[in-house]
Amino acid sequence: MIPFNYVLMCLIFGTTFLAIKVGIDAGVSPFFSAGVRFFLAGAILFIVMVIQKKARLSLLLRKEMMLTGLGLTFGVFASLYWAEQYVSSGIAAVLSATAPLMIMLLQTGITRQKMSASSWAGCLVGFAGVVILLVPGMTVAFSGIWAAGCVAVLLGQVFYSAGTVYSRRVIRRFSDTSPIALNAAQMLYGGLMLLLLSLFTEQVHMEAMLVPEAVFSLLYLIVFGSMTGHTIFYWLVAKTNPVFPSTWLYISPLIALSLGVVLYGEPLSLLSLAGGVTIIAGILLINLKSLRQLAGARSHLVERS
């Protein structure tokens, strides 16, 4: 069951970038679409958690839920949805894979701990991958709005890294509450913030939301991207450990890159492909110690069985 759910999670997370792109190209308002997605997904999951008595309504009154939603949902997806108006879903996915790099740098800055040689090497390799990935668009046919889109995705990962580091404290503080309920609460707040942003920055055309492509995109992202994918992730954390489920970051961006080219006809240069692979290699180097520990733990389990 664990291998099946892991593969399913990687496929789901790998397809969400293309699903966002399909909705954006159908004419939906980026912030409004993102807000509806996360508000509805968070509301449905939270109601289920309350019914199952795994969460209390008072959880929504805690400022920690709002702050986590600001980092993990609002900051990340406001940037991503806006950026996918101008960059391909594959490029957005690969740039999003820089999150572990930023998380490590942020944790190092906070704790003042020294990074290992492999971590420093991973940072340099990952940064080189970003440069290689961006070179074709910057030199062959420079577009200021394309570059801004790429920067926006990277900015979103800064929000994600801060939200991730903070959410780890929140999970420890609310250890008696299901992580799925905590995630649902932060999605509710993040979705509400996105809707407020849309209210002040966008002119929403509701007819665009009723286009078949837009409806499919929204339903897929609510049911699979936000509800199913994250539920599987937390299930895997409970059944294995925090490291193993996070390895989706090495697989899903390449799935997204491939799907964008094959199913949506997105352009892909050899340099962009090389940049994507280089970024993933950098992330692997950064997490080399954790991955070795994970491999050792799994081999130990095999020997015991």
Results as ranks from 00 to 15, higher is better:
Thr240Cys: 06
Thr278Gly: 02
Gly137Glu: 09
Ala121Pro: 05
Trp146Asp: 13
Met206Gln: 09
Gln113Phe: 06
Val28Asp: 06
Glu266Asn: 00
Ala34Asp: 05
Gln107Ala: 10
Val261Ile: 10
Met209Trp: 03
Arg173Gly: 03
Asn183Pro: 08
Thr231Val: 07
Phe224Trp: 09
Ser258Met: 08
Thr108Asp: 03
Leu188Cys: 05
Ser119Asn: 09
Met187Asn: 11
Glu303Met: 14
Ser29Leu: 02
Met115Arg: 09
Ser299Trp: 12
Trp248Phe: 13
Arg62Asn: 11
Ser161Pro: 02
Ile232Met: 06
Leu263His: 06
Phe17His: 09
Gly282Cys: 00
Lys289Glu: 09
Ser118Lys: 14
Ile232Arg: 02
Ile279Ser: 11
Gly260Thr: 02
Asn5Arg: 15
Val135Lys: 10
Gln113Asn: 10
Ile12Trp: 01
Gly229Ser: 08
Leu61Cys: 08
Ala128Asn: 07
Pro136Lys: 11
Met193Cys: 03
Ala184Ser: 00
Met65Thr: 05
Ile47Gly: 07
Gln186Thr: 14
Ser58Met: 07
Ala274Cys: 13
Ser79Trp: 11
Lys21Thr: 12
Ile279Gln: 09
Gln85Arg: 15
Ile145Thr: 12
Ile110Lys: 04
Leu271Ser: 14
Ala238Arg: 15
Ser290Ile: 14
Leu210Tyr: 09
His205Gly: 14
